[in-house]
Computed example of a mutant assay.
Amino acid sequence: MSKRVRNWSLGIVGLVLGLLWLFPFYLILTNSFKTPKGIFSSVINLPLHGTLANYTQAFQALDFIRSLFHSLLITVVSVALICIASAMAAYAIQRNHSKVSNVILMLFVAAMLIPFQSVMIPLTTIFGKAQMLNIPGLVLMYLGFGTSLSIFLYQGAVAGIPEALDEAATLEGAGFGRIFFTIILPMLNPMTVTVAILNIVWIWNDYLLPSLVLPQNSYTIPLQTFFFFGQFTKQWNLALAGLMFGILPVIVFYFFAQRWIIKGVTAGSVK
């Protein structure tokens, strides 16, 4: 098989797989503009008489602005804390050449193997007694669950930074904080992007932990979408419009950040 034929074959296979992957999204998008009668008459066809009334009702019933604010607040604060805390911990572990540091790193790695379901009930019980079943408590939980993998990734990246840079900065009178924030952290930008992407995807789409922690007035988009979809299951036009509101922020985020996402994932894989 020639190279040209092989490339064409791979292109056709990729196109078919892409269309199959996009087909559910096509169904959600097209049917979200239809009336109930239009959906039951034909699910696959394009809407003949499209309407935006579905989105207006879904926007109000979903309380989209509030739930979007909660999702953004929780995700941004959690990811920022995870990145800073994990980078500092990884730097301290990597630069402290002792058996204790190796043990601490192994403990963080082992913590990744603990399933959330095994600590779910004790965790919520403890936080409930401390009256922390709210957004700050959820951020603290994400910080605890997200640092293990993040420290492991950062540790490998820090290992690739020569210690001579630290020594030269120390001779110039720089302390730990200045060395880390002005020299080490900027050099960890590719890994920071990778860690941020992994945690953004996890935290933004998480349903189980917020459902156990957050009160109703602090629901995130996945929680609001779940209860909204359950309420309007028989009204598919409204339910699908609500799902589009849940999907839309992720799509917008990807289009604006795709350059950094691809660059960060590629750099992270090399590390």
Rank of each mutant, 00 (worst) to 15 (best):
S2T: 14
V5S: 06
W8T: 12
I12V: 15
I12K: 00
V13F: 09
W21V: 15
L22N: 09
L29W: 05
S32D: 08
I39V: 11
S42T: 14
L46D: 10
G50Y: 06
T51L: 05
T56P: 00
L62M: 15
D63H: 13
D63Y: 05
H70F: 04
L72V: 15
V76E: 10
V77L: 12
A89T: 15
R95G: 07
S98W: 12
V103N: 00
I104H: 00
A110Y: 11
F127P: 00
Q131K: 05
N134G: 10
L138K: 01
L143S: 07
I151H: 00
F152H: 04
F152Q: 04
P162Y: 11
P162K: 08
A164Y: 15
A164W: 12
L165W: 10
D166T: 11
L171F: 10
L171C: 07
L171N: 10
E172I: 06
G173C: 02
F180Q: 08
N189I: 12
M191I: 13
T192L: 06
N199H: 13
N199S: 10
W202A: 10
I203Y: 01
N205F: 08
D206K: 06
S211I: 15
S218I: 09
Q235E: 13
N237M: 03
G246S: 12
P249N: 09
F253C: 01
Y254R: 14
F255S: 04
F255D: 02
W260T: 09
I261W: 04
G264N: 12
G264R: 04
V265W: 12
V265G: 06
K271N: 15
